[in-house]
Design a protein around this nucleic acid. Structure first.
Lengths: 230, 230
DNA sequence: CTATTGAGATGATATATATCATCTCGCTTT
DNA sequence: AAAGCGAGATGATATATATCATCTCAATAG
């Protein structure tokens, strides 16, 4: 855990999904066994191949989840936003983190003791089923992203990245990219150079407005078509 | 559901994972609400984009799970063997099958009523946690496969396919491939031609013995090295 | 205040692998 | 028995994108 991360006594508050399915005792149990940790930009939250220690829930900020391979090859799987669990699949799977996470911007993350959480799961079937639903959806999502990477070519993948920010992260067609070109390339499954080139083409073709990290999608239709045609 | 599939009255028997965590009533509830269906080679078990209807558990045989894209592009995700659930992530996720499944060889599959199964999950926390563990592992597995496809080049991916059969499916270095070259290519994320070429190179380099569908891995070390180097 | 570093950008070139075109062989169909 | 068909195999060619090489510019460091 990074030294610059600071521990605050705040409870996890309202960010936990399906909180309404828990009773008072269960909520209190979780709150007694959780605390919020703040991470500065670029701080490491957890590292691939380390043991899982807590359930982690995003309270605020933005965190990138990525898989690091030998020799620089890293794949950016997704960005996590407030209200999302991170590393849940590894916690529930084989207890070893299968990917790493670092803060993209100032982020507060709620750490919940695994045993307390498991106890709640054990005695609350509805909550448990909903968590299963979340894990499954999360799996299917990353899944689709990787499938697209494998079988779409560049323009389609770049379009996917733009749609990801517009639809999933910022929920509007104008936004500032929170990542470097290199990271964006890792998200699209390509190289920095190829990413830049293709994005520049989009700009020249007036599909998007582009200035530094500022992006404005001019023709959402064309972006969607590019994504669909692959 | 395919016409040539025949329904037998047999219960799912001993194939269900973590059966020992269930009590007598729970086992009986599941057995009353399940039946085994047989599928012949090439029969469709379920089709992508259809609604999920049952929990499905492999009793015997071999089934391929794949994603079909427009224009022939299909990706073979994995093969399912006895004791494995199929389509579980979709059932627990958004209730729409995200991929298709067909029998590769004669297969018996146990269909369990979703509601009965959910009831058991709701009242049995330990069983529920184990299922979460299975779903998570399944997700992590397919992840790794797709990641490898995205970031390894051909020889590494072909080596992965050989290791998949040797280690996961048949658990021995000599086996008969149950799939056509085209399907194997879909499993490796490449084309039939490229797959054949690379496999032939392996043969010429005496890394494997190859005759039709018969494969014998001569140098497991080299195959593993190829897989690791990507 | 100069020097260094890293991000962004763009052109030239290399290369892995897809695509296209055949050919054979065994099997099913008529 | 002839004809058609799909799987496997192999060569020739095309092409998307990675790689390598520069250049600029702004930010950070000494």
């Amino acid at each position: 855990m990074n030294l610059s991360a600071s521990i605050s006594g705040l409870p996890c508050g309202q960010q936990m999904p399906y909180l309404q399915l828990l009773n008072k005792e269960q909520i209190e149990l979780l709150q007694r066994n959780s605390n919020v940790v703040s991470y500065n930009k670029k701080d490491i939250v957890f590292r691939q191949n380390t043991r899982t220690s807590h359930i982690m829930l995003m309270v605020s900020g933005l965190v990138k989840i990525f898989k690091e391979g030998r020799s620089e090859r890293t794949v950016l799987l997704r960005l996590a936003t407030p209200g999302e669990y991170i590393g849940m699949m590894s916690v529930m799977g084989d207890q070893i983190h299968q990917y790493s996470a670092t803060a993209v911007e100032l982020a507060d993350i709620c750490f919940i003791d695994i045993n307390a959480y498991r106890n709640v799961l054990m005695e609350n079937g509805k909550f448990s089923l909903q968590l299963m639903n979340l894990i499954s959806k999360d799996g299917l999502f990353i899944f689709n992203r990787l499938m697209n990477q494998t079988h779409k070519q560049l323009p389609g993948r770049i379009a996917d990245v733009l749609l990801y920010f517009a639809e999933q992260i910022y929920k509007q067609p104008h936004f500032d990219l929170p990542l470097t070109r290199r990271e964006l390339a890792e998200l699209a499954g390509t190289t920095k150079e190829s990413f830049i080139r293709t994005l520049t083409e989009f700009k020249n073709d007036k599909i998007i407005y582009l200035d530094g990290s500022r992006v404005e999608i001019i023709s959402m239709d064309i972006v969607k078509t590019l994504s669909e045609l692959g």
